[in-house]
């Protein structure tokens, strides 16, 4: 009975996910020529990747990061500089951005892992602030203004030289972002269900007990940092090719770190798909309700506060927990409990 219910549930969730995915695949057909909306969905996918990457490190492994813009920015700048100055295709420079972000994570995380809890979070926050200033000081951007990389017109030829887009066709960019997001989601769902994911969760729940169970906590934490950094770096890299420019304000702002956290918390930490829902919710409200000005962001944060107060686990995590109770309440003696779920 228990397993039967669990299997039914698996089918229902699979159906819901497939319907949502079907809708997302049809977006360019449903809103032909609506560049603004298609762009908004591209941003939603980028933020989904960022939020999932945060969820792996913070939701699953318990290493709360306040500075995911660190990875996002390293990926963004790496890809922007390589593609603009070496002329490489974004299809190569985006993964390289991820690799650089991953290495950046390794560099910062390895010494920081002896710290736990709020101290580790502070290290991530300060790292993000540090790289922001570094980029500004180095004046990496060819225009020299505060490290921004913008389009330059070559005076001799009159050619406008920008960070290249992934594709000139906005629909192709859309499918690239959606495809990447879906592949990463599938990868992460397999990862967290594997024994590696189990080790991550053991470390989150009780690091000392995990060590007592024979788990090399440091090794698994570094792995979590590197995978999370890689994915956030990919998100940042896609972002610069979408915007065709990079600047500290665009890809290194602390707001980005906060937005990743808000999206994950809204959807439910430790669920992978919850942060995707949270990111879509956040970006769609932020972009589609622009006529309401700053009020829309205020509204998002009020909703976030209400969710934190009443559904602290996040929306998807709460649904999952209730369904778990429903699966268990198989005894016909308790019809109310079954009916409620």
């Amino acid at each position: 009975m228990i397993l039967k219910r669990a299997r039914t549930l698996t089918w229902v969730s699979a159906a819901i996910i497939l319907i949502s995915l079907g809708f997302l695949i049809l977006v360019p057909q449903l809103f032909v020529g609506n560049s603004f909306l298609i762009s908004t969905f591209v941003f939603a996918n980028i933020y989904s990747i960022l939020a999932m990457s945060w969820d792996l490190l913070s939701g699953y492994t318990g290493q709360i990061s306040f500075g995911h813009s660190f990875f996002f920015g390293i990926g963004a700048y790496t890809s922007a500089l390589l593609s603009m100055h070496l002329g490489w295709s974004p299809l190569y420079t985006i993964p390289l951005g991820g690799v650089m972000a991953s290495l950046g994570g390794l560099l910062v995380a390895t010494p920081a892992l002896r710290l736990r809890g709020p101290y580790l979070s502070l290290i991530t926050l300060v790292s993000a602030l540090g790289i922001d200033q570094l980029i500004r000081v180095l004046k990496l951007g060819s225009t020299g203004a505060e490290g921004a990389i913008q389009c330059e017109i070559d005076l001799a030829t009159g050619v406008n030289h920008c960070v290249p887009p992934i594709s000139a066709n906005e629909v192709e960019v859309y499918y690239f972002a959606l495809g990447l997001m879906v592949c990463i989601a599938i990868f992460l769902i397999f990862l967290v269900r594997s024994r590696i994911g189990l080790a991550f969760e053991a470390i989150r729940d009780d690091e000392e007990a995990a060590e007592a169970a024979g788990i090399d906590a440091k090794k698994y934490k570094i792995l979590a940092f590197m995978i999370s950094g890689f994915l956030a770096g990919l998100a940042g890299a896609v972002m610069v090719h979408k915007m065709q420019q990079a600047s500290p304000g665009l890809v290194l702002d602390l707001n980005i770190s906060i937005e990743a956290i808000v999206a994950s918390v809204l959807g439910g930490m430790g669920t992978i798909l919850g942060p995707v829902g949270g990111a879509y919710f956040y970006i769609l409200i932020r972009e589609l309700l622009r006529p309401f000005g700053q009020w829309r962001l205020f509204a998002v944060f009020v909703i976030a506060l209400l969710i934190l107060l009443f559904i602290p686990r996040g929306v998807l995590a709460e649904i999952r927990l209730r369904l778990m109770h429903w699966i268990k309440s198989e005894k016909p003696k308790e019809p109310q409990q079954g009916a409620r779920a």
Partner: peptide
Amino acid sequence: VEIALIPNAI
């Protein structure tokens, strides 16, 4: 219980 069976070789 399964957590205690996880090997460290990733």
